[in-house]
Design a protein around this nucleic acid. Structure first.
Lengths: 210, 210
DNA sequence: GCAAATTAATGATTTATTCAAG
DNA sequence: CTTGAATAAATCATTAATTTGC
Protein backbone atom coordinates (compact mmCIF):
# COMPACT_ATOMS: atom_id res chain seq x y z
CA UNK A 1 0.00 0.00 0.00
CA UNK A 2 2.95 2.25 -0.28
CA UNK A 3 2.29 3.70 -3.76
CA UNK A 4 -1.24 5.03 -4.00
CA UNK A 5 -3.78 5.02 -1.21
CA UNK A 6 -1.34 5.34 1.60
CA UNK A 7 -2.24 7.63 4.40
CA UNK A 8 1.21 8.23 5.64
CA UNK A 9 4.59 8.61 4.08
CA UNK A 10 6.98 5.77 4.31
CA UNK A 11 10.50 6.51 3.25
CA UNK A 12 12.22 4.44 0.58
CA UNK A 13 15.52 2.87 1.45
CA UNK A 14 17.44 5.51 -0.45
CA UNK A 15 15.50 8.31 1.18
CA UNK A 16 16.15 6.89 4.56
CA UNK A 17 19.82 6.41 3.92
CA UNK A 18 20.19 9.99 2.80
CA UNK A 19 18.26 11.32 5.72
CA UNK A 20 20.36 9.35 8.12
CA UNK A 21 23.52 10.48 6.43
CA UNK A 22 22.38 14.05 6.74
CA UNK A 23 21.57 13.49 10.35
CA UNK A 24 24.91 11.95 10.98
CA UNK A 25 26.56 14.89 9.26
CA UNK A 26 25.21 17.06 12.02
CA UNK A 27 21.88 18.31 10.75
CA UNK A 28 19.31 18.28 13.52
CA UNK A 29 16.81 21.09 12.93
CA UNK A 30 16.97 21.94 9.22
CA UNK A 31 15.82 25.37 8.16
CA UNK A 32 12.96 25.97 5.72
CA UNK A 33 15.27 26.14 2.72
CA UNK A 34 17.25 23.15 3.85
CA UNK A 35 14.07 21.16 4.14
CA UNK A 36 13.01 22.29 0.72
CA UNK A 37 16.30 21.23 -0.80
CA UNK A 38 16.27 17.89 0.88
CA UNK A 39 12.69 17.31 -0.16
CA UNK A 40 13.41 18.23 -3.76
CA UNK A 41 16.34 15.92 -3.82
CA UNK A 42 14.63 13.01 -2.16
CA UNK A 43 11.55 13.29 -4.33
CA UNK A 44 13.73 11.68 -7.00
CA UNK A 45 13.50 8.44 -5.07
CA UNK A 46 9.79 8.54 -4.37
CA UNK A 47 6.86 10.58 -3.20
CA UNK A 48 7.85 12.89 -0.37
CA UNK A 49 6.77 16.22 0.99
CA UNK A 50 8.47 18.87 3.03
CA UNK A 51 6.55 18.03 6.13
CA UNK A 52 7.82 14.49 5.96
CA UNK A 53 11.36 15.74 6.12
CA UNK A 54 10.47 18.12 8.87
CA UNK A 55 8.85 15.46 10.96
CA UNK A 56 11.56 12.98 10.27
CA UNK A 57 14.25 15.16 11.72
CA UNK A 58 12.07 16.12 14.61
CA UNK A 59 11.35 12.54 15.54
CA UNK A 60 14.82 11.31 14.86
CA UNK A 61 16.35 13.90 17.08
CA UNK A 62 13.88 13.27 19.84
CA UNK A 63 14.27 9.53 19.73
CA UNK A 64 17.98 9.85 19.73
CA UNK A 65 17.86 11.84 22.88
CA UNK A 66 15.42 9.37 24.34
CA UNK A 67 17.72 6.51 23.52
CA UNK A 68 20.59 8.28 25.16
CA UNK A 69 18.63 9.03 28.25
CA UNK A 70 17.51 5.46 28.65
CA UNK A 71 21.00 4.28 28.12
CA UNK A 72 22.31 6.61 30.75
CA UNK A 73 19.70 5.81 33.30
CA UNK A 74 20.30 2.14 32.76
CA UNK A 75 23.97 2.64 33.29
CA UNK A 76 23.32 4.60 36.42
CA UNK A 77 21.00 1.98 37.76
CA UNK A 78 23.53 -0.68 37.03
CA UNK A 79 26.23 1.26 38.74
CA UNK A 80 24.06 1.82 41.73
CA UNK A 81 23.11 -1.79 41.88
CA UNK A 82 26.69 -2.79 41.66
CA UNK A 83 27.61 -0.40 44.39
CA UNK A 84 24.81 -1.74 46.50
CA UNK A 85 25.83 -5.31 45.99
CA UNK A 86 29.39 -4.43 46.54
CA UNK A 87 28.48 -2.66 49.71
CA UNK A 88 26.46 -5.52 50.98
CA UNK A 89 29.10 -8.02 50.08
CA UNK A 90 31.67 -5.89 51.67
CA UNK A 91 29.70 -5.76 54.82
CA UNK A 92 28.99 -9.40 54.78
CA UNK A 93 32.61 -10.27 54.35
CA UNK A 94 33.60 -7.95 57.06
CA UNK A 95 31.45 -9.82 59.39
CA UNK A 96 32.68 -13.21 58.29
CA UNK A 97 36.33 -12.78 57.89
CA UNK A 98 38.69 -9.89 58.16
CA UNK A 99 41.66 -8.47 56.34
CA UNK A 100 42.05 -10.92 53.50
CA UNK A 101 38.59 -10.75 51.92
CA UNK A 102 38.14 -7.09 52.67
CA UNK A 103 41.30 -6.28 50.83
CA UNK A 104 40.21 -8.35 47.89
CA UNK A 105 37.15 -6.13 47.37
CA UNK A 106 39.16 -3.07 47.89
CA UNK A 107 41.14 -4.12 44.89
CA UNK A 108 38.35 -5.02 42.55
CA UNK A 109 35.85 -2.29 43.36
CA UNK A 110 38.07 0.60 44.09
CA UNK A 111 37.51 1.21 47.70
CA UNK A 112 40.09 3.55 48.94
CA UNK A 113 40.19 2.54 52.50
CA UNK A 114 40.07 -1.00 53.52
CA UNK A 115 37.63 -0.43 56.29
CA UNK A 116 35.28 2.32 55.03
CA UNK A 117 31.88 1.90 56.56
CA UNK A 118 29.54 4.58 55.06
CA UNK A 119 28.35 4.98 51.42
CA UNK A 120 25.98 7.50 49.75
CA UNK A 121 23.40 6.45 47.12
CA UNK A 122 21.84 9.81 46.38
CA UNK A 123 18.69 10.66 43.72
CA UNK A 124 -13.35 33.60 23.74
CA UNK A 125 -21.50 37.64 22.68
CA UNK A 126 -22.67 35.03 20.43
CA UNK A 127 -22.58 31.66 21.79
CA UNK A 128 -23.51 30.42 18.36
CA UNK A 129 -20.51 31.50 16.32
CA UNK A 130 -19.86 29.37 13.32
CA UNK A 131 -17.25 28.88 10.67
CA UNK A 132 -17.91 27.09 7.46
CA UNK A 133 -15.17 24.58 7.14
CA UNK A 134 -15.59 24.43 3.41
CA UNK A 135 -14.52 28.05 3.10
CA UNK A 136 -16.82 29.88 0.72
CA UNK A 137 -14.58 32.86 0.17
CA UNK A 138 -11.80 33.13 -2.36
CA UNK A 139 -9.28 30.65 -1.16
CA UNK A 140 -6.39 32.06 -3.12
CA UNK A 141 -6.35 35.29 -1.20
CA UNK A 142 -7.83 34.01 1.99
CA UNK A 143 -5.21 31.41 2.59
CA UNK A 144 -2.14 33.40 1.77
CA UNK A 145 -0.53 35.52 4.37
CA UNK A 146 2.74 37.36 4.53
CA UNK A 147 5.25 36.61 7.14
CA UNK A 148 8.74 37.45 8.21
CA UNK A 149 11.08 34.57 8.59
CA UNK A 150 14.48 34.62 10.11
CA UNK A 151 16.97 32.57 8.19
CA UNK A 152 19.64 31.22 10.49
CA UNK A 153 22.02 30.65 7.61
CA UNK A 154 22.09 34.10 6.10
CA UNK A 155 21.08 35.63 9.40
CA UNK A 156 18.57 37.77 7.52
CA UNK A 157 14.88 38.31 8.01
CA UNK A 158 13.04 37.36 4.84
CA UNK A 159 9.47 38.19 3.89
CA UNK A 160 7.67 35.01 3.03
CA UNK A 161 4.18 34.45 1.86
CA UNK A 162 2.56 31.78 3.89
CA UNK A 163 -0.62 29.98 4.62
CA UNK A 164 -1.89 28.02 7.48
CA UNK A 165 -2.69 24.39 7.83
CA UNK A 166 -3.74 22.32 10.76
CA UNK A 167 -1.23 23.25 13.38
CA UNK A 168 1.43 24.14 10.88
CA UNK A 169 2.72 26.50 8.27
CA UNK A 170 4.37 26.65 4.86
CA UNK A 171 6.47 29.07 2.93
CA UNK A 172 5.21 30.08 -0.50
CA UNK A 173 8.38 31.82 -1.54
CA UNK A 174 8.29 35.60 -2.08
CA UNK A 175 11.02 38.17 -2.61
CA UNK A 176 12.18 40.74 -0.17
CA UNK A 177 9.40 43.25 -0.01
CA UNK A 178 7.85 45.09 2.83
CA UNK A 179 4.57 43.36 3.35
CA UNK A 180 1.96 42.97 5.96
CA UNK A 181 -1.51 41.62 6.34
CA UNK A 182 -2.73 45.13 7.08
CA UNK A 183 -2.01 46.23 3.57
CA UNK A 184 -4.15 43.47 2.31
CA UNK A 185 -7.50 44.58 3.60
CA UNK A 186 -10.15 42.08 4.57
CA UNK A 187 -11.62 40.64 1.46
CA UNK A 188 -15.16 40.47 2.67
CA UNK A 189 -17.10 40.68 5.82
CA UNK A 190 -16.62 37.58 7.84
CA UNK A 191 -19.73 35.62 8.41
CA UNK A 192 -19.33 35.57 12.13
CA UNK A 193 -22.91 35.67 13.26
CA UNK A 194 -24.98 33.16 11.35
CA UNK A 195 -28.45 32.10 12.29
CA UNK A 196 -27.88 28.53 13.25
CA UNK A 197 -26.90 27.43 16.69
CA UNK A 198 -24.68 24.53 15.92
CA UNK A 199 -21.36 24.52 17.61
CA UNK A 200 -18.28 23.49 15.85
CA UNK A 201 -15.79 22.90 18.50
CA UNK A 202 -16.77 21.61 21.87
CA UNK A 203 -13.37 20.39 22.75
CA UNK A 204 -12.28 20.94 26.27
CA UNK A 205 -8.97 19.42 27.10
CA UNK A 206 -10.10 16.32 25.29
CA UNK A 207 -8.77 15.59 21.84
CA UNK A 208 -10.49 17.41 18.95
CA UNK A 209 -12.52 15.50 16.37
CA UNK A 210 -10.39 14.00 13.67
CA UNK B 1 6.00 50.26 20.30
CA UNK B 2 2.94 48.41 19.22
CA UNK B 3 2.59 49.84 15.69
CA UNK B 4 5.82 49.61 13.73
CA UNK B 5 9.09 48.09 14.82
CA UNK B 6 7.64 45.51 17.06
CA UNK B 7 8.99 42.02 16.98
CA UNK B 8 5.93 40.35 18.30
CA UNK B 9 2.25 40.81 17.75
CA UNK B 10 0.28 42.45 20.48
CA UNK B 11 -3.43 42.28 20.05
CA UNK B 12 -5.60 45.39 20.01
CA UNK B 13 -8.45 45.55 22.45
CA UNK B 14 -11.00 44.72 19.75
CA UNK B 15 -8.98 41.80 18.51
CA UNK B 16 -8.65 40.45 21.98
CA UNK B 17 -12.32 40.83 22.71
CA UNK B 18 -13.27 38.94 19.59
CA UNK B 19 -10.78 36.22 20.23
CA UNK B 20 -12.02 35.78 23.74
CA UNK B 21 -15.60 35.74 22.54
CA UNK B 22 -14.74 33.04 20.04
CA UNK B 23 -13.01 31.10 22.72
CA UNK B 24 -15.92 31.42 25.06
CA UNK B 25 -18.20 30.25 22.26
CA UNK B 26 -16.35 26.98 22.36
CA UNK B 27 -13.58 27.29 19.79
CA UNK B 28 -10.43 25.71 21.05
CA UNK B 29 -8.42 24.36 18.15
CA UNK B 30 -9.56 26.26 15.06
CA UNK B 31 -9.00 24.60 11.71
CA UNK B 32 -6.93 26.14 8.95
CA UNK B 33 -9.91 27.78 7.31
CA UNK B 34 -11.27 28.98 10.61
CA UNK B 35 -7.98 30.59 11.42
CA UNK B 36 -7.89 32.22 8.04
CA UNK B 37 -11.37 33.65 8.49
CA UNK B 38 -10.62 34.93 11.93
CA UNK B 39 -7.39 36.47 10.74
CA UNK B 40 -9.08 38.18 7.82
CA UNK B 41 -11.71 39.56 10.09
CA UNK B 42 -9.37 40.71 12.80
CA UNK B 43 -6.97 42.34 10.37
CA UNK B 44 -9.59 45.07 10.15
CA UNK B 45 -8.60 46.13 13.64
CA UNK B 46 -4.85 46.00 13.16
CA UNK B 47 -1.92 44.04 11.92
CA UNK B 48 -2.35 40.34 12.50
CA UNK B 49 -1.29 37.13 10.87
CA UNK B 50 -2.68 33.63 10.89
CA UNK B 51 0.04 32.36 13.09
CA UNK B 52 -0.88 34.89 15.74
CA UNK B 53 -4.38 33.50 15.82
CA UNK B 54 -3.07 29.99 15.88
CA UNK B 55 -0.73 30.67 18.75
CA UNK B 56 -3.32 32.65 20.62
CA UNK B 57 -5.71 29.75 20.74
CA UNK B 58 -2.98 27.35 21.56
CA UNK B 59 -1.73 29.41 24.45
CA UNK B 60 -5.16 30.37 25.69
CA UNK B 61 -6.28 26.81 25.79
CA UNK B 62 -3.15 25.64 27.51
CA UNK B 63 -3.27 28.37 30.11
CA UNK B 64 -6.88 27.69 30.75
CA UNK B 65 -6.08 24.12 31.50
CA UNK B 66 -3.21 25.20 33.65
CA UNK B 67 -5.42 27.56 35.60
CA UNK B 68 -7.91 24.79 36.14
CA UNK B 69 -5.28 22.39 37.29
CA UNK B 70 -3.85 24.84 39.79
CA UNK B 71 -7.30 25.60 41.06
CA UNK B 72 -8.01 21.97 41.55
CA UNK B 73 -4.79 21.18 43.32
CA UNK B 74 -5.33 24.12 45.62
CA UNK B 75 -8.78 22.90 46.43
CA UNK B 76 -7.46 19.47 47.10
CA UNK B 77 -4.78 20.78 49.37
CA UNK B 78 -7.30 22.84 51.23
CA UNK B 79 -9.58 19.90 51.57
CA UNK B 80 -6.83 17.78 52.88
CA UNK B 81 -5.77 20.42 55.31
CA UNK B 82 -9.30 20.82 56.51
CA UNK B 83 -9.70 17.14 56.87
CA UNK B 84 -6.51 16.97 58.78
CA UNK B 85 -7.51 19.77 61.12
CA UNK B 86 -10.90 18.30 61.46
CA UNK B 87 -9.43 14.98 62.25
CA UNK B 88 -7.13 16.41 64.82
CA UNK B 89 -9.90 18.43 66.38
CA UNK B 90 -12.08 15.43 66.39
CA UNK B 91 -9.49 13.50 68.17
CA UNK B 92 -8.77 16.22 70.59
CA UNK B 93 -12.39 16.56 71.48
CA UNK B 94 -12.73 12.93 71.93
CA UNK B 95 -10.09 13.04 74.50
CA UNK B 96 -11.55 16.01 76.32
CA UNK B 97 -15.23 15.37 76.34
CA UNK B 98 -17.47 12.74 74.86
CA UNK B 99 -20.75 12.46 72.99
CA UNK B 100 -21.80 16.08 72.76
CA UNK B 101 -18.84 17.59 70.94
CA UNK B 102 -18.20 14.55 68.86
CA UNK B 103 -21.69 14.66 67.49
CA UNK B 104 -21.32 18.30 66.64
CA UNK B 105 -18.47 17.54 64.26
CA UNK B 106 -20.31 14.65 62.81
CA UNK B 107 -22.96 17.09 61.76
CA UNK B 108 -20.78 19.79 60.26
CA UNK B 109 -18.19 17.65 58.56
CA UNK B 110 -20.17 14.69 57.48
CA UNK B 111 -18.71 11.91 59.46
CA UNK B 112 -20.94 8.98 59.18
CA UNK B 113 -20.21 7.36 62.43
CA UNK B 114 -19.82 9.29 65.56
CA UNK B 115 -16.82 7.40 66.70
CA UNK B 116 -14.90 6.58 63.56
CA UNK B 117 -11.23 6.44 64.24
CA UNK B 118 -9.46 5.70 60.92
CA UNK B 119 -9.40 7.75 57.69
CA UNK B 120 -8.07 6.87 54.27
CA UNK B 121 -6.72 9.36 53.09
CA UNK B 122 21.07 8.33 5.25
CA UNK B 123 23.83 6.86 1.07
CA UNK B 124 26.39 9.50 1.31
CA UNK B 125 29.69 9.23 2.94
CA UNK B 126 30.51 12.84 3.03
CA UNK B 127 30.56 14.10 6.53
CA UNK B 128 30.68 17.58 5.16
CA UNK B 129 27.27 17.88 3.55
CA UNK B 130 26.13 21.44 3.15
CA UNK B 131 23.03 23.38 2.25
CA UNK B 132 23.01 26.98 1.16
CA UNK B 133 20.54 28.72 3.37
CA UNK B 134 20.02 31.47 0.85
CA UNK B 135 18.45 29.07 -1.60
CA UNK B 136 19.82 29.72 -5.06
CA UNK B 137 17.23 27.71 -6.89
CA UNK B 138 13.95 29.04 -8.13
CA UNK B 139 12.11 29.79 -4.95
CA UNK B 140 8.69 29.76 -6.55
CA UNK B 141 8.91 26.14 -7.43
CA UNK B 142 11.29 25.09 -4.74
CA UNK B 143 9.22 26.34 -1.90
CA UNK B 144 5.85 25.19 -2.98
CA UNK B 145 4.76 21.71 -2.25
CA UNK B 146 1.51 19.91 -2.56
CA UNK B 147 -0.10 18.44 0.42
CA UNK B 148 -3.22 16.64 1.46
CA UNK B 149 -5.09 18.16 4.33
CA UNK B 150 -7.90 16.63 6.23
CA UNK B 151 -10.63 19.13 6.96
CA UNK B 152 -12.40 18.20 10.15
CA UNK B 153 -15.44 20.26 9.20
CA UNK B 154 -16.21 18.74 5.85
CA UNK B 155 -14.43 15.54 6.80
CA UNK B 156 -12.78 15.56 3.38
CA UNK B 157 -9.18 15.35 2.35
CA UNK B 158 -8.26 18.40 0.33
CA UNK B 159 -5.18 18.90 -1.80
CA UNK B 160 -3.43 22.01 -0.70
CA UNK B 161 -0.33 23.65 -1.96
CA UNK B 162 1.97 24.40 0.83
CA UNK B 163 5.40 25.54 1.78
CA UNK B 164 7.58 25.16 4.78
CA UNK B 165 8.88 27.61 7.28
CA UNK B 166 10.86 27.25 10.42
CA UNK B 167 9.02 24.58 12.26
CA UNK B 168 5.72 25.35 10.58
CA UNK B 169 3.54 25.22 7.52
CA UNK B 170 1.00 27.21 5.49
CA UNK B 171 -1.80 26.48 3.09
CA UNK B 172 -1.63 28.23 -0.27
CA UNK B 173 -5.07 27.27 -1.43
CA UNK B 174 -5.46 24.94 -4.42
CA UNK B 175 -8.46 23.13 -5.85
CA UNK B 176 -9.11 19.47 -5.68
CA UNK B 177 -6.61 17.94 -8.01
CA UNK B 178 -4.55 14.85 -7.79
CA UNK B 179 -1.08 16.10 -7.11
CA UNK B 180 2.14 14.86 -5.74
CA UNK B 181 5.70 15.96 -5.43
CA UNK B 182 6.74 13.03 -7.59
CA UNK B 183 5.03 14.49 -10.61
CA UNK B 184 7.00 17.62 -10.11
CA UNK B 185 10.46 16.30 -10.79
CA UNK B 186 13.44 17.71 -9.00
CA UNK B 187 14.25 21.02 -10.47
CA UNK B 188 17.96 20.64 -10.42
CA UNK B 189 20.58 18.49 -8.88
CA UNK B 190 21.02 19.30 -5.31
CA UNK B 191 24.39 20.65 -4.43
CA UNK B 192 25.19 18.03 -1.89
CA UNK B 193 28.93 17.84 -2.19
CA UNK B 194 30.44 21.25 -1.95
CA UNK B 195 34.08 21.85 -1.31
CA UNK B 196 33.92 23.54 1.99
CA UNK B 197 33.84 21.71 5.22
CA UNK B 198 31.75 24.05 7.23
CA UNK B 199 28.93 22.46 9.11
CA UNK B 200 25.59 24.10 9.24
CA UNK B 201 23.91 22.60 12.13
CA UNK B 202 25.78 21.44 15.15
CA UNK B 203 22.85 21.55 17.43
CA UNK B 204 22.64 18.77 19.89
CA UNK B 205 19.84 19.17 22.34
CA UNK B 206 20.96 22.72 22.88
CA UNK B 207 18.97 25.58 21.37
CA UNK B 208 19.74 26.33 17.70
CA UNK B 209 21.27 29.65 16.64
CA UNK B 210 18.77 32.42 16.17
C1' DG C 1 4.47 62.85 38.36
C1' DC C 2 8.37 60.33 35.74
C1' DA C 3 11.54 57.06 34.44
C1' DA C 4 14.51 53.14 35.95
C1' DA C 5 13.90 48.70 37.93
C1' DT C 6 10.94 44.62 38.87
C1' DT C 7 7.43 41.70 38.18
C1' DA C 8 3.50 39.67 35.78
C1' DA C 9 1.41 38.35 31.19
C1' DT C 10 1.57 36.34 27.24
C1' DG C 11 3.39 35.73 22.34
C1' DA C 12 6.44 32.40 20.14
C1' DT C 13 9.40 28.07 20.13
C1' DT C 14 10.99 23.89 21.38
C1' DT C 15 10.49 19.50 23.56
C1' DA C 16 7.83 15.64 25.34
C1' DT C 17 4.03 12.72 24.89
C1' DT C 18 0.58 10.37 22.58
C1' DC C 19 -1.87 8.22 18.73
C1' DA C 20 -2.16 5.09 15.17
C1' DA C 21 -0.50 3.15 10.52
C1' DG C 22 2.35 -0.46 8.74
C1' DC D 1 7.34 -2.75 17.83
C1' DT D 2 8.86 0.86 14.99
C1' DT D 3 7.98 5.39 13.52
C1' DG D 4 5.24 9.04 10.94
C1' DA D 5 2.01 12.44 12.52
C1' DA D 6 -0.24 15.31 15.74
C1' DT D 7 -1.05 17.45 20.11
C1' DA D 8 0.03 19.02 24.66
C1' DA D 9 3.36 20.60 27.95
C1' DA D 10 7.32 23.19 28.99
C1' DT D 11 10.16 26.75 28.00
C1' DC D 12 12.04 30.98 26.22
C1' DA D 13 11.72 35.93 25.27
C1' DT D 14 9.46 40.23 24.80
C1' DT D 15 6.04 43.29 26.11
C1' DA D 16 2.69 45.45 29.47
C1' DA D 17 1.90 46.39 34.29
C1' DT D 18 3.61 47.58 38.57
C1' DT D 19 6.51 49.22 41.89
C1' DT D 20 10.09 52.16 43.64
C1' DG D 21 13.02 56.09 44.51
C1' DC D 22 13.58 60.62 43.50
Amino acid sequence: MSPAGSSRWSPTTEQLMILEELYRSGIRTPSASQIQQITTHLSFYGRIEGKNVFYWFQNHKARDRQKLRRKLTKQLQLQQQQQQQQFQLHHHCQQLNQDHITNHFVGSFGYSTARSTTHDFSFFNSPSLIFQGGAANTPEQALSCKWNVHNPQSNLVENKEMAFCNYGWTLVDVDNQASSCCTTRPLKTLDLFPLTTTRINEDCTATPPK
